[in-house]
Simulated assay, not measured.
Amino acid sequence: MKTTPRPFRPVRILAFALAGVLALAAFIALRHVRAAHAVLHPARQALKPLGAATLAARTDVALRTRDGLTLRGWYVPSRNRAAVVVMHGFAENRTQMLFEAEALSRAGYGVLLFDSRGHGESDGELVTWGDREREDLRAAVDFVAARADVEPSRLGVLGFSMGGTTAMLGALEDARLKAVAAAGAYPSLVADTRYSYGRWGPLSVLPVLWTMRLSGVDVDAVDPMARLCELKGRPLLLINGDVDAYAPAFLQDALFQAACEPKAYWVVPGAHHGEYAAKAPAEYERRLRAFFDAALLGGP
């Protein structure tokens, strides 16, 4: 017995195609929700062991934030009445910044290194990409400003990556910080998310931003580029590698263009994210010292 073939039904084909598109969209969105959870709760990295001569004058310190967290760190006393707070990047800890800390300490600066919330030995389970980390920096500034070896009008901050963005945000809110150096920083959390997760456009970007917002991150507050001119004469130094895939040149250039004078921008040849000391150690140290000397000590 012959069967008659079913007639072609374009509506059915369209329905199957739409179902496939929706399934793909849901898969992409779920994948990026999971990615957002991972960057909000990174695995902690153990502190690297220090040799006896590394920051030999350091003492252990505990900072208390206004939202109730204890942050662990080290302080090296000042010999020139000035001090610099040093902030590490995402998924790292204070030992990431040993080169910078030693360079500044050799120049006579008091240096405070600490683990940001959710990192290293500090309290906290949520990393907010510069939002609540502003409170970490505020606690650090409170600490150094109260030191007997430091003149409170001679305080600066140096941050890398997430720490660099936090440094700019914190300085915009705290006039006690007279100089800001930011290496490999991002101009805003929205811009960084679009760059890092923009392969599928809104399908991949929006789930990340929504997850951050639902987790309590004030995404819109992490936007130093929009307000950099509010530093009002306090100098800014931006540092980046010319082959940095995490902090691409177009974002760094936009950040620099948004800033007002006095400002400086050093691009390190051949440096990936955070490789400034590896590629140009002497020049990196010289530039850090010259920047903070001019801003905090009245040097040339």
Rank of each mutant, 00 (worst) to 15 (best):
H88F: 07
L47K: 06
R94H: 12
N93L: 02
A36R: 05
P42V: 00
R81E: 06
R94G: 12
L50C: 07
L30F: 12
H32R: 09
V85F: 05
V61C: 00
N80T: 08
L55K: 04
D67Q: 02
R81V: 05
R34W: 15
A43S: 12
F90H: 15
L50P: 01
L40F: 15
R66K: 02
V86K: 14
Q96R: 13
L63G: 02
L55N: 01
G73Y: 05
G89D: 05
L40Q: 08
Q96V: 11
E92G: 13
V33E: 11
A35C: 01
A46Y: 05
A57P: 01
R34M: 15
I28T: 03
R79I: 14
V33I: 08
I28N: 07
A52T: 12
A62D: 08
A57K: 13
I28R: 12
T95Y: 03
L50M: 13
A83C: 07
I28G: 09
H88L: 08
A82H: 06
A26H: 06
M97A: 08
Q96H: 04
V39Y: 13
V76G: 01
V39D: 05
L63Y: 00
A52L: 11
Q96L: 14
F27N: 07
H41T: 08
D67H: 02
A56D: 05
H37S: 11
D67N: 03
G51I: 13
L30M: 10
L50D: 05
G89C: 10
A57Q: 14
P42A: 03
N80C: 09
A26Q: 07
R81T: 11
M87G: 08
Q45W: 14
D67T: 00
Q45Y: 14
R44L: 02
N80W: 06
A56W: 04
E92N: 15
R64A: 12
W74Y: 07
L71R: 09
P42T: 00
A56M: 05
P42D: 04
V76L: 10
